[in-house]
Design a protein around this nucleic acid. Structure first.
Lengths: 219, 219
DNA sequence: ACCTGAACACCGTTCAAGT
DNA sequence: ACCTGAACACCGTTCAAGT
C-alpha cells in the first residue's frame, strides 16, 4: 500500500468520481472526499475553487463514454436518432451528474464531439445553417430535457419504477369521471412500458416534424 | 401585531412559499422557516413528515396559476400549443420549485387539470387512446424537460443570459475548424434569441410530427 | 396536545499555523 | 509549496422535557 500519492487535480477527480459511483452524488462532500483521499478536507481548496468546480470536472468525464462517430450506409435521420439515444444513455448512466451538464453547455471536448456530430448529420440532411441550428436546439431540448425528467427516477431499481407507474395508472383510473373524463378513459394507456420507450416515441415524432418542416422550406 | 397565530399546515406552507419567493428555494430550511414563523424548527415536524413533504406542497401550489380552460374557435393544435406554453410559463416562474414536480406527477388537483386539458385536446384532434397517451407523454417530455434545462439559467436576469449566449457563440466560432467544421460554421446561428423562442420551435416541430404520424395512422 | 431546547451527525469554506 | 486543524456559520432530524 504505502502512503497515498501527493494530491493532484486528477487524483481528486478520480476520488470524487469513485465516491459518486459507489454511493451516489449526494455522498460527495469535502469531508468524505478528504477522508477517502487521506487528506484534510480543506486541502481540496488548493486544487479547486470550490466543490462546484470539482463537480463540473467529474460531470465532463462521463460524457466521454458517448460514441458518436460516423457510420457508413446510415441515413442522416438514423444517425441523429442514434446520437440522441447515445446522449440520453450517458446522461442516465450517471443521472445525478447529468444535472451538472444540463443548464449550460460545458463547451469542453466531450460535449463538443457530440455537438459536432449532430450538426454534421443535420448538414448531411440538407438543413441550411439557420434551420440546422434550430433543429439542433430542438433535439437537445428534448433529449437533455427528457433525461432530466427521468434522471430522478432512473436512480432507483426498475421494479420500483414499474410499481410507481402502475400506481399512477390506478390513480388516474380512479378519478371522478365527471371532472376528469379523458384522464379516466386513457388511464390504462398512460405510463405503459419504459421511460426509454416514451423518449423514443417523442424523438421519432420530433424527427418526423423536423423533416416535414424542412421539406416544406425547400419546396 | 400580537403573537403569531398557532402553527398549521397552511401557515407553514404560506411561510415556506414566501421564503422561497423572496430569497430563492435554497433559502428554505427548517431553521430559517422556524424563525420566520416564530417557532422552533423542530415544531415543523409535527405537521410534516420531513422537509420534502413541505416542498411538494409548495410545489403543487404554483401550478394553480396555470390557465388551461377551453376556448371557443380554437383548433386542437393551437390549444395544445397554448397549454404547453402555459405549463412552461408556470414552471419557469418558480424555476426551483419546478424541480419538485418534474420527476413524478403529483397527481394533485392542479396537475390533473393540466393533464385533463391536454388529453381533451388530443381527443378532439382525433387521436385514439393509445396514440393520445403517446402524444401526451411526448408533449410533457419536451415541455417539462425543456423547462428543466432553462430553469437553472432562468433564475438570473435576462442581460446575464444574453451575455452567456454571446460568450458561447464566440467560443464555438473560435474552435479549430479542422476538428469542428460544422460547429464553427454554425456558431453565429446558435443560441440566437431567447430560450422561449427555442422551445416554441421545438414544440412546433413536435406538433407537426405528431400530426403527420397521426394522419399516417388514420389513412 | 403542542412546542421547546438540547443534542447528534452532518455541511462548505477560510485562514493562521505548521512542516 | 503544500497541508493541517481549528473555527465559523450553517444543515435535517430526534426526543426528553416542559407548558
Amino acid at each position: 500500500m504505502g502512503r497515498p500519492p501527493a494530491l493532484s487535480r486528477e487524483r481528486i477527480i478520480d476520488g470524487a468520481a469513485a465516491l459518486i459511483a459507489e454511493h451516489g452524488a449526494d455522498a460527495l462532500s469535502a469531508r468524505r472526499l478528504g477522508e477517502a483521499l487521506g487528506c484534510d478536507p480543506s486541502a481540496l481548496y488548493r486544487h479547486f475553487e470550490d466543490m462546484g468546480e470539482l463537480k463540473r470536472e467529474v460531470g465532463d468525464r462521463y460524457l466521454a463514454t458517448a460514441r458518436v462517430g460516423e457510420r457508413t450506409n446510415e441515413s442522416w435521420r438514423c444517425a441523429l436518432r442514434r446520437i440522441c439515444i447515445e446522449l440520453r444513455k450517458v446522461q442516465l448512466r450517471q443521472p445525478r451528474l447529468a444535472a451538472l451538464v444540463r443548464a449550460a453547455p460545458t463547451r469542453l471536448a466531450n460535449e463538443l464531439r457530440i455537438t459536432e456530430a449532430l450538426l454534421r448529420e443535420l448538414a448531411r440532411g440538407g438543413f441550411d445553417l439557420a434551420s440546422a441550428a434550430s433543429a439542433y436546439h430542438s433535439l437537445i431540448e428534448l433529449t437533455v430535457g427528457s433525461a432530466a425528467i427521468d434522471a430522478d427516477l432512473g436512480g432507483q431499481p426498475a421494479a420500483d419504477r414499474r410499481k410507481a407507474y402502475r400506481e399512477w395508472q390506478r390513480h388516474y383510473a380512479a378519478l371522478d369521471p365527471i371532472e376528469f373524463p379523458h384522464a379516466v378513459a386513457i388511464a390504462s394507456h398512460l405510463y405503459v412500458g419504459s421511460a426509454d420507450a416514451r423518449f423514443l416515441e417523442a424523438l421519432d415524432a420530433l424527427l418526423a416534424g423536423l423533416s416535414s418542416l424542412e421539406r416544406q422550406a425547400t419546396q
